[in-house]
C-alpha cells in the first residue's frame, strides 16, 4: 500500500501563532503523536457521488438580480505533489460579499448584506483536475483580533482529495492586496513561497470581454509516495 509524504517544514501554518489570538486556547500544547498510516487514513470521504446542481459553481445567478461587485471567473487545477490531476473531487467555496460582509448571523460588521448574494458554491474537478467558479470579488473586512485588524480579501476553499490525509481547508487571496503583511492568518505560514502560493493570479485568457475578470489558482494536495511503477502495478 502507498503512503503519503510528510508536508515540508515551514510550508504549513504554525498551529500556535501568538499574533492570531484565537490560536492560543484552541490548539494542543503537547506534541502531536506520530502513528503509522493505516487503512483508516489511506481511505477517506470522496464525496464524488454528491449530486452537484448545474449552477452550483455560479454564485451570481441564484436571484432575479445579479449581486453587486466585480464579476470574476475563477478557475484552476487541483493537483497532487507529483503534479497529477486530482479528478472528480469536491471543491466547496465560501466568501464575503463585495462589501466585506458574510451571510452569517455572527458577522456583525456594519456593511450591507446583498440580497442577491449568498456566497457559497460547489464544483467537481474534471478529468484534468480543473474547477471553475463564477462569483464576485469579495471585500476586505475588519475583525477583532487586534486594533484596526483587517483581513485581506479572500475566498475559502474546502477539498477532500483521495484520502483522509489529503483533506484541505484553506483561503485564496488576490494579487497585490496591501493587507498581506498585516494579516496574522496569512503570516502564520513561515515560508514566504508557501504564502505566495495562496495568491491567485490575474489571467487575461479567462477574462471575459465586456463581462468578467479572470483569475487562476492551482491547489496542491498532499501526495502519496507511490512511484509511477507502483501505479502501473495496480
Amino acid at each position: 500500500m502507498h503512503s503519503y509524504k510528510r508536508t515540508l517544514p515551514g510550508t504549513q501554518p504554525n498551529r500556535r501563532h501568538d499574533a492570531y489570538r484565537s490560536t492560543l486556547l484552541r490548539n494542543p500544547r503537547q506534541p502531536l503523536i506520530q502513528i503509522p498510516q493505516t487503512l483508516s487514513e489511506l481511505t477517506g470521504p470522496l464525496c464524488g457521488d454528491n449530486p452537484i446542481g448545474e449552477s452550483d459553481n455560479d454564485l451570481t445567478c441564484h436571484f432575479a438580480e445579479e449581486p453587486l461587485g466585480q464579476r470574476i471567473h475563477l478557475s484552476g487545477r487541483v493537483l497532487d505533489e507529483d503534479g497529477r490531476p486530482v479528478r472528480n473531487t469536491l471543491v466547496e467555496i465560501w466568501q464575503a460579499n463585495a462589501a466585506g460582509r458574510y451571510n452569517h448571523p455572527v458577522d456583525q460588521h456594519p456593511a450591507p448584506l446583498d440580497p442577491n448574494f449568498i456566497g457559497s458554491g460547489r464544483a467537481m474537478t474534471d478529468d484534468e483536475g480543473e474547477y471553475r467558479f463564477v462569483t464576485i470579488r469579495p471585500g476586505s473586512y475588519p475583525w477583532g483580533n487586534h486594533y484596526n485588524a483587517w483581513r485581506p480579501a479572500h475566498i475559502h476553499f474546502s477539498l477532500f482529495g483521495p484520502s483522509l490525509l489529503t483533506r484541505l481547508i484553506t483561503q485564496m487571496y488576490f494579487p497585490g492586496d496591501p493587507l498581506f503583511d498585516f494579516d496574522p492568518i496569512m503570516q502564520s505560514i513561515p515560508d514566504e513561497d508557501a504564502r505566495r502560493r495562496l495568491i491567485s493570479r490575474f489571467d487575461l485568457e479567462t477574462t471575459v470581454p465586456e463581462r468578467a475578470l479572470g483569475f487562476k489558482w492551482d491547489i496542491v494536495l498532499r501526495g502519496s509516495g507511490a512511484t509511477p511503477f507502483e501505479d502501473a502495478g495496480k
Binding site: 481547508i169 505560514i189 501526495g223
Partner: peptide
C-alpha cells in the same frame, strides 16, 4: 516531489 502541498488556513 515536483509540487508542494498548499498551505492550510
Amino acid at each position: 516531489r515536483s509540487l508542494i502541498a498548499s498551505a492550510s488556513q
